[in-house]
Design a protein around this nucleic acid. Structure first.
Length: 260
DNA sequence: ATGGCGTACACCGTACGA
């Protein structure tokens, strides 16, 4: 079972690229982030023709997440479901969960935070804390769970190109790493790191300044699995090829193959 | 170098991303 995740930065702009990647990879599940479109503008038909169901939590202009899957998704849930639907952390469409082939899959677009001084930064930290509470309230570390998406944190210094220059700044600060570490400590393993130990492997490169071509990026997109699922992870990697296609997203695909 | 580039919405600029 091949599970994958991709921040597409607008599903309407990138739908043909998503189809192309699905055809090439044969992925069973693809989690999407930053749809930037409401449900009624999601290209359901296009993916249905390619053999994929879609569980969508859409939003116009900002955010929006989805799970594409060959098998029909079950028990679809939108948002941090342990909180009220009108809770401030559920106003933005950042979480969708579904059960596919016996695996609970969560597609997550975690807040960016903007800067350490921004009002959006405490919102980011609060979202991380409640994401951990969501896992505690909804799942078991002994079950098969895959939490993946754009987490907007480079969790270790080897996950960015210029750690010494960045110091304490957005995407790398100790507060963000600590709060995301609490999520990891639910009992999750970073699937990419099970199979790749080297520095300099990234999932996002800024459009500005040709950062991809300079090899200067960050690993901020992840695929994390509970132990019972991680133990079945036979391969995992970042596929940079979509970042080199014409009119790319600034993020690329992370995938993991599980022997289930 | 808070710029760079890209997307959305809408209006010909502004907000936002990371």
């Amino acid at each position: 079972m091949k599970i994958s995740t991709w921040n597409v930065n607008s599903i309407r702009v990138r739908s043909e690229q998503v189809l192309k990647w699905l055809e090439r990879s044969g992925a069973d599940v693809l989690c999407l982030q930053e749809l930037k479109a409401p449900e009624e503008e999601f290209p359901y038909e296009l993916f249905k023709e390619a053999g994929y169901h879609a569980a969508v939590a859409g939003q116009r202009t900002y955010n929006g997440v989805a799970i594409l899957s060959k098998e029909e998704p079950e028990e679809v849930s939108i948002g941090l479901s342990h909180l009220a639907p009108d809770h401030p952390l559920n106003e933005q469409r950042r979480i969708v969960a579904a059960t596919v082939g016996g695996v609970r899959v969560v597609s997550a677009y975690l807040p960016n935070g903007e800067s350490l001084e921004s009002d959006k930064f405490p919102y980011k930290l609060e979202f991380f804390r409640e994401l951990r509470n969501y896992l505690d309230a909804t799942f078991e570390p002994e079950g098969k769970l895959c939490l993946c998406g754009d987490f907007n944190v480079a969790i270790n210094d080897i996950d960015l190109y210029n750690p010494e220059e960045r110091g304490e700044s957005i995407l790398v600060s100790s507060k963000e790493r600590g709060a995301l570490g609490e999520v990891l400590d639910f009992g999750l393993a970073d699937c990419f790191r099970l199979h790749n130990k080297e520095q300099g492997r990234y999932s996002w490169w800024d459009y500005r300044g040709g950062m991809y071509w300079k090899g200067e990026g960050m690993r901020i997109d992840y695929l994390w699995a509970t132990r019972p699922l991680a133990d079945l992870c036979v391969a995992s990697d970042i596929d940079e090829s979509p970042r080199r296609w014409k009119r790319p997203s600034d993020h690329t695909v992370v995938w993991a193959d599980f022997d289930v």
